[in-house]
Amino acid sequence: MAAAMILLIMRKPGNIRVMQHALDHLGHSSKGISTEAELQAALAEPISPRLGVVDVTDFSTDVWSMCTRLQNHNIPFIVLSAPQTLNLDNHSLAYGATSVLRKPIAKSALLQLIHGLAA
């Protein structure tokens, strides 16, 4: 399978680091995004991202406009949320998330899902 570009839309540098490390092992390239401007720039690049992974917990409501941008570019995305955030989960699905996963996520399960969606 060809390497896919995956957008990691997250605020915590630590989360971007561990996600990138895991995706590197799978042979995918990834880009950390923490603001809407960065997302806009990434979407304007010639290589189109194949998947987005959005950690909604550390963002304010601006995260929904980022989800909308992904949806508008037909980029599927997975939402990561904290436990007991049912409201966020519902919003995520309403804004087009393919799947909502609760943190912490079993690494192997997430990578398998990403791998499948990015294929």
Binding site: M10, K12, P13, G14, N15, R17, V18, M19, H21, A22, D55, L80, A82, K103, P104, I105, A106, K107, S108, L110
Partner: peptide, 14 residues
Amino acid sequence: TEQQSYDVFAAADV
């Protein structure tokens, strides 16, 4: 200082 803590995976996984 570089906010390297994470919560996306369990520590054991990382």
